[in-house]
Write a protein that binds this DNA or RNA. Structure first.
Lengths: 146, 146
DNA sequence: TTTGAAATTGTGGCCCG
DNA sequence: CGGGCCACAATTTCAAA
């Protein structure tokens, strides 16, 4: 994991479908050498995979919200995870410091869809109450790591 | 933009480096047909591009926080965006409903780095005060759209 | 959309520093 | 061990049908 690996990762984050030869030109290595490094990065888990970046609006998933989740009593993180896993609207979830037990990032097709998702979220037994904040506009959205 | 396009997008989100032939096998099309559809999806902006999914921990960006930003007086979203843009630690930012003007998703190398990033954030003129919530663990992190 | 041919790319083997 | 070079298989990417 040296600076060449970092530059390879940068290239792949900019365009995950670029050829090994092109990446090699950028970082000063041959195509096979780049492939071997990428394989190793995938193997060690530094690179988890490659994905397409889509425009949620155009796919009809334009409504987002952040939801503070407050649980009843003490709940293990893994417990919360298992309850959230089956909900397609849950994009991400985190345990956090502060009053809330978790923050859930929801995405839905519209406000109505968001409402039903929130209802289902609140119906989860271990969840006591929720405080939701609807996203009005997306100011910035960067790829995971520079 | 039909159901085949959606399935192509799903395939690419699962693995952005899979070959057009493989995608074609999944959705029942030939490789060139898939390529033409992907090109069109890129052209119309439904697909924005392809990127690598990295493990932030292993790259040394393991500390995250959500920050509620409260501004002085009335501020245009575009104004906030321009102030946040130069900060590398800002992963995403949204204008939201509720008391806060915006929610900023920060990512830093460690707590100390996060602190300095927060200081810089609070130093922005238009920002009155911030309420930050540090992420303890990541329960779930799904690719953008199912 | 499919086909087929030419150019490009992926991938494993092999040797070298 | 990691990189370059080579060769063959696979894939991309055109053309035309």
């Amino acid at each position: 994991m040296d600076s060449i690996d970092q530059r390879i990762i940068s290239c792949l984050m900019a365009n995950a479908r670029s050829s090994y030869a092109d990446i090699g030109k950028e970082v000063g290595l041959s195509a096979p050498a780049v492939k071997r490094r990428v394989d190793k990065l995938l193997d060690t888990g530094v690179l988890r995979g490659f994905t397409a970046v889509v425009d949620p609006e155009q796919l009809g998933w334009g409504t987002e919200a952040f939801v503070e989740v407050h649980c009843r009593g003490n709940v293990a993180p893994h417990d919360i995870q298992q309850r959230l896993e089956p909900m397609a609207e849950v994009m991400a979830a985190y345990t956090v410091s502060g009053a809330a037990d978790a923050i859930v990032h929801l995405r839905a097709a519209n406000i109505h869809h968001l409402e039903t998702a929130l209802e289902r979220l609140r119906a989860v037994e271990i969840i006591d109450r929720t405080v939701s904040t609807v996203v009005l506009s997306r100011l910035l959205d960067r790829p995971p790591v520079p």
